[in-house]
Amino acid sequence: MSRRVLTMFMIIFVIFLYAPTLLLPIFAFNDSSIISFPLSGFTLNWLKSLGAAEELRKAAGTSLIIASVSSIIATMLGLLATSATVRYQFPGKGFAIGAIMLPMFLPEIIIGVSLLTVVLLAGFKLSIYTIIMGHVLICTPFCIAILRSSFQQLDPSLEEASLDLGESRINTFRRVTLPLIMPGVVSSLLIGFTISLDEFVIAFFLSGTEPTLPVYIWSQLRFPQRIPSVMALGTLLLILSVVLLTLSELLRRRSARRLDQKATSGAL
């Protein structure tokens, strides 16, 4: 009995989760500037209009730069933090992990506002660097969560074997550790990239003259006539996210197989 009820619940749950998202592609190709049913016909105009928007292209470029740099820095910091916490015991470990993971639990507006305060007080100008700092801060905990599962699956005796065979620590990391956790690293890069690309609040508070893509979208939302174009853009972003995620998931599974572990959920 309860089994069937739960299954029904899950089906409704997933439909509810996805229903709004499905509107994106529907209205992205609907030949009407008013967003409502019934649909009036198929069009590619909204998609084409994106190509003409100069600001959009600039914003997308800015976002790509920020997302790339943030995900790389966050992954490197994540590697250091994970390697330290998974393998070593040291005083203040709990505090250090807590401090690094804290942004995961803080309202983003707090992070945005506090960084904004520093920038204002120090007299810096808002730029893509300020956004990158904020994004690294919020991406690092997620990168750590992903890298941790890779590190935990890594048999420490492999590294010990390498050291025993006379390799230095740095080279052991390069020749043994890194190749084995590579899928996790790539997965971490992809996740960091996706988070940064999507992040709005921090970018909104910290962006200067160069808006990121979400900030640009935000500015468009005020104009009802732009909404179908935004839907088209949203569709493209959705596809990009799904592709990146699928890639990251495939990599994670391959890594799990390579490390001879059962492939279960590892995203969190």
Binding site: L77, G78, L80, A81, F90, P103, S114, T117, V118
Partner: peptide, 28 residues
């Protein structure tokens, strides 16, 4: 030596989070 190694590895990410989160929060 383990503790030293762990501390040296965690120092950079920790410094980053102290500099960009703890300090800004204190200034806030």
């Amino acid at each position: 030596s383990d503790a030293r190694r762990g501390l040296s590895q965690i120092s950079l990410p920790l410094a980053f989070s102290v500099l960009l989160l703890a300090a800004p929060l204190a200034i806030l």
